[in-house]
Nucleic acid binder design. Structure first.
Lengths: 192, 192
DNA sequence: GTCTATAGTCTGATAGAC
DNA sequence: GTCTATCAGACTATAGAC
């Protein structure tokens, strides 16, 4: 069994697992469902992953890493104003949540299902992503664009964004970009 | 089996189930765990509830009903300004989520685990609670206290509040009331 | 790398005595 | 209203052939 490799095959299997975990939740997703989605039998799955937990860890690592990369790229290609940077972060966050609709959602909603060892391994990645957010929030606070406690504002903003997964309708009239714009408008107190 | 009764016994069992559902999640909570928490054997559990699903429905009904009652009471005993009312709603919401720490959390986080019939039965209760929120948001919008789209502002505010469950530390320095105050300050753009 | 077959465990739920 | 005993099915994971 190939533990901890990064083969393209494993990446693809991880992507398919993510989709099922979002649809059904980790606990309700059986190894048989995963295998079927991947077009193999359940026994074969354990050639690629040691156990079901390792699949979850792979999905969450992929989801957080991806969110981090996209957020960084987004920050590098936007205007250098606090408001533009805040908006870029919100848009990037929503796009990984609502457009890809898989690994990042799993990272947020199934984090508690990780066993302690996997959590210890992935917590640094998660911290890096949250640190990026807090830096951008800090800039907005320093510029007087928003007000309040840095820790609480970060948590509230991320919470508002994370919860969109529960109600957002991709077929509806609003794009993730619209949502990002409206959220920033809400906390910077400008009419949308 | 006593389906759909409201005996004090059943209420108490529902309360204990809620605690386990929050701790472990619905899927990972077995009927044996529930029975043990209740001080009976697993077979006896089915005298009070038809099946595991019915326990979940009872918890969610209890949690939403309670949130609705507390929110209404909170609105009736606060000042009649849009800001005070917004704060009262936020405080009530957080108190049912973070202080009771059971049934309302289950209502929010395990809603998707309800089977379709139970969802149909409970959706009106949930709608009533959300309508209360939207009314208070509307007042704040009309008064110019906040800006934006009524639907989006409601969803963002509720998301920010709901996500506190994931990070709030009851042993920390902040009370639910502090959080409510900071959230309202954030969206009304006043220094905390 | 995938298959078949299955071990071993846990699950929700039922039956019937008390 | 609670108990004991148990069923039938589903679950993760393994073994060994190809």
């Amino acid at each position: 069994m190939n533990v901890m490799n990064d083969s393209p095959r494993r990446k693809e299997l991880t992507r398919q697992a993510a989709q099922l975990f979002v649809q059904e939740g980790f606990d309700r997703t059986t190894v048989r469902m995963l295998a079927q989605e991947m077009g193999i039998k359940s026994g074969s799955l354990f050639h690629h992953f040691r156990d079901k937990q390792e699949i979850l860890a792979a999905v969450i690592e992929e989801g957080t890493q991806n969110a981090l990369l996209i957020a960084r790229a987004s920050l590098e290609s936007c205007d250098h104003t606090p408001e533009a940077r805040l908006q870029a972060m919100a848009r990037a966050h929503l796009e990984t949540l609502l457009t890809d609709r898989n690994a990042h959602v799993v990272a947020l909603y199934e984090w508690r299902r990780l066993d302690p060892e996997a959590r210890d391994h992935l917590i640094h990645l998660r911290d890096a992503y949250e640190a990026l957010w807090e830096a951008v929030i800090d800039e907005a606070l320093d510029a007087g664009l928003i007000h309040g406690d840095r820790f609480l504002v970060s948590r509230f903003v991320m919470g508002a964004l994370n919860w969109t997964v529960r109600w957002y309708d991709p077929a509806g009239p609003r794009s993730p970009d619209d949502l990002a714009h409206e959220l920033v408008a809400m906390i910077t107190q400008r009419p949308a």
